[in-house]
Design a protein around this nucleic acid. Structure first.
Lengths: 346, 346
DNA sequence: GGTGAGTACTAAATCGATTAAGTAATTATT
DNA sequence: AATAATTACTTAATCGATTTAGTACTCACC
């Protein structure tokens, strides 16, 4: 890499000090009484040689990188991809750049990535935390670096959290199925004690018990890859042929579930109704279209950025914490059509 | 943000110079004859206070950030998401971090992002170039910063390119349809003069002409949003009811196309066969499953990283350029089943 | 006992910006 | 005419690392 032009090179060429160049480049020419002709001379030369400031040096001096580190479970998951896009877009307009990284919900990978972010001196963190990084989060907070958790949080750690009403989301979905005469409703979730999954489970169980129905739960072990998830779900459906509806706890469980259902030649919604917690663009594309408990992506992105900016610019606000709970939206599509008499005779 | 511990704080506490601390932390204790007890004292203290080096300072001094800037069309596109994942994974193992950004194929956004990357002193670039940034690419090359283009390239700029055989991909797809008795085969592509789209078009046209068939081409204008794309395709299908097969030029054209086909109540593959250039995870999920010209994602990622590392560590290699062409894989699924007599009578 | 080699470190320059404090020249005020 | 204020800059310290060129000391060897 060729040596790049620095502020000193510009200063030398224009017969001024580097301070003057810095003032001009940072729009402080006015308040520092730099004459217009001097400013213009500098600006002209800057344009001529296509100078771009060295942000590394700038960051070292100012202690600010204007970079925000963002940890998600997987950037290819449509939910996280959409959140990331919404956040990046807003951050960009405010002059911040987002560093993305996927944890794959792996504790050690997440710890590692936080270390990388720390080394790069990111100004703040946006994290969908995997299990087991409580201490790392605490340590960031001790440094007084703004941290926002989203999608899930640790009840044991005092943080800023932007979450959705997971309990209500699954409760509503089950109530809807019950009102449409479904009686044997299953729930496919993850073997996980993360807050969002526990809340979805509670919503399911309360709705089932409230209606005196039997619960059928499959907890898929964490860190399975796709074909294994599919097989677990196949087994579950085979062993519980009485099921006439299933709620899937995440969109990728739903995707795998649909593939399992296809493979077993079961018809949706004739033989079994399907609802996904978490919407996905493909759910309105496929036939039948899939009913979903949608998370309010744009609202989440907005809330995250708003709280983050407050924390960045107001140390007092940053020393406090806030938990914002947003409501889900229940989107009824074809996969959960009202159960007819005919279909009751399974 | 609280002031963090620096190498000088460690030096002071351990009664050594910062040079010694630097040597110890960079595994140069041995070659610099630092005694084991001194090294251990430093290492113990470093662990005790949870010191993480300031990579901003390090980068300023060394001129290397170990960050690679990557520009893709849209990180939510399954093709780019998969490539990004493959590249990130490989780069991570080599101690590099990838900075992603989406251009949305917008010239100005891309120029802007390159400027941001430059300011942050990224060590190298991986770019799927939108139209019109030839000069920016040339300018990077003048700086002797390694640049790899992928997916498409500028014939007029001398760069390192990793691309697929687009011509052959669509040629093969059309030949396959012809062998299965399809006669009125359309091509839905983008209004674009980018290399990959032009090559796909040529492959289509040559195969059609080679068989003395009529070509039916829809060029969707660039920068349309989803509902508009969908409407354009609906119109095209309505006006050309004679079509018995369509090749879509990208996976999102195919997604929109399928939605259009659904809306028009046309059956795939009974009424019309469908092939997508570019595979997508959803294509094996939906019913019918979609035949696709798949790009060799892992090979592309591998080739990009390999060439990039060569350029980073070998200035002579970096002064030369190389274009690597990878072959596509034709994945036959249900949406292009062999045309039967019955279906010939449309 | 003088020279050379090796050991175990340190001083200080450097990367490219920002910024507090200072200065010389001009203009204004009393 | 002396002093104060303003203008239009500059000097030099600083951020936190790396790295070149030392320094002081011990030990060996002729």
């Amino acid at each position: 890499m060729k040596k790049k032009i620095s502020i000193h090179d510009i200063a030398r060429h224009c017969n001024v000090s580097s301070t003057t160049v810095s003032f001009v480049l940072n729009n402080k020419a006015g308040e520092n009484k730099i004459r217009k002709e001097v400013a213009d001379k500098i600006l002209d030369y800057v344009k001529e040689v296509n100078y771009t400031p060295n942000h590394v040096a700038k960051s070292l001096r100012t202690g600010k990188t204007r970079i925000i580190g963002m940890l998600v479970e997987g950037i290819s998951d449509p939910f996280f991809a959409a959140i990331a896009k919404g956040i990046e877009h807003r951050a960009y307009k405010l002059g911040y750049k987002i560093f993305f990284a996927s944890t794959d919900n792996d504790t050690n990978k997440a710890k590692d990535l936080i270390k990388v972010f720390r080394e790069r001196q990111v100004d703040a963190y946006i994290i969908a935390p995997p299990p087991g990084i409580e201490d790392d989060i605490r340590s960031l907070i001790e440094d007084e670096t703004p941290v926002i958790l989203f999608d899930r949080y640790y009840p044991s750690v005092n943080t800023n959290n932007i979450i959705v009403n997971n309990y209500d989301g699954s409760y509503q979905a089950i109530r809807y199925l019950q009102q449409n005469k479904y009686v044997n409703i299953g729930f496919v979730t993850l073997e996980s004690s993360q807050s969002q999954m526990e809340d979805r489970m509670k919503g399911y169980l309360d709705a089932i018990k409230g209606n005196n129905q039997t619960s059928y739960v499959l907890k898929v072990p964490y860190s399975l890859t796709d074909p294994d998830i599919l097989n677990h779900i196949k087994d579950f459906l085979n062993k519980n042929s009485v099921l006439d509806a299933v709620l899937f706890g995440t969109n990728y469980l739903a995707s795998n579930g649909l593939e399992a259902i296809n493979a077993l030649q079961i018809k949706v919604p004739e033989d079994i109704a399907v609802i996904s917690f978490d919407d996905s663009p493909i759910f309105r594309l496929i036939s039948p279209t899939i009913t979903a408990v949608a998370q309010p992506i744009e609202n989440i992105a907005e809330a995250v950025i708003k709280r983050l900016m407050t924390c960045l610019y107001d140390p007092i606000a940053n020393s406090k914490t806030e938990t914002i709970v947003l409501e889900t939206e229940f989107i009824i599509r074809n996969s959960s059509a009202k159960k007819t008499k005919k279909r009751l005779v399974v």
